[in-house]
Amino acid sequence: MYRIRFHGRGGQGMKTASRILGSAFFLQGYEVQDAPRYGAERRGAPIFAYVRAARQAIQERGIILEPDLVIVADDSLVPMPAAGVLQGIMPRTVLLIHSGETPETWRHRLNIAGPLLTLPAEAAAGDGQRFAGAALAGAAARLVGVITSSALERAVQLELAGLGREIVSANLDQALAAYERMAPEAGRVSEGEVFAAAACRRPDWVELPLDEADAAAAAIHAGATSVEVRTGLWRTLRPVIDYPRCNRCWWVCSEFCPDSAIRVNAGQYPEIDYDHCKGCLICVAQCPAHAISAVPEAQA
């Protein structure tokens, strides 16, 4: 069975990528299971999606703990422990990072001996990211080595149907280009084993002790703890105020910010709290003086 995990941020098309790959496997005659995993987060938050593909019916369920292939759409997630990108990586796991840096740099940085590849990210953010999902699905299709380009093509068309011909063909170009680029690595990813009962480790079960109710209640004993959650990490684009252009209107930006991430300082200028600004860019759209612009995080 192939077990493949895609990591990215909400909005980068990881669900679509997993579905393109899932459909491509399915068109190729495989049994397939694919699913995105997200919680209460939104755009920009780390999410992942997974694909299982096998010749026989798939009974396994849930998160993939021993992946054959891990794909990372946003290289800023790699060092983020909460994103769990490196979870369960085995010596034979292929790691594919969508990044402007070289495989050598990443191998050195992560101290990983196993196979590590990169798919160069197009001109960061902007358009490159828009097609990251399709490109990475295309790369994955080639890395497993059992999916033809025509199955990939049909899968892209199937999954993106309804988005209009232009978008479909732009995504298709990206998917096929990545498929071509990975040709030297075709078949690099191999199928993982089904587990053998004989080799099963015994689970490390414990007798759960009864704790004091005080400690065992799901309560938070402090005010304003949400401040501790740095939702600013979800941001891919950063709003930047051009102060000479800001005319301190009536702080429309601050008024509209859904995360209350813009305060007005003593000089009556707006100030963005980048620890909590999620990068929705509503302020950019609302500022009557056009004093706020969006800058990709990688360049900020």
């Binding site: 579905r19 899932g22 399915f26 049994e31 397939v32 299971q33 694919d34 699913a35 995105p36 995993r37 798939i58 369920r61 849930g62």
Partner: peptide, 10 residues
């Protein structure tokens, strides 16, 4: 939820 609701199968 999740294991079926968001999971695609044939």
């Amino acid at each position: 939820g999740f294991y079926l609701s968001f999971t695609r199968e044939p």
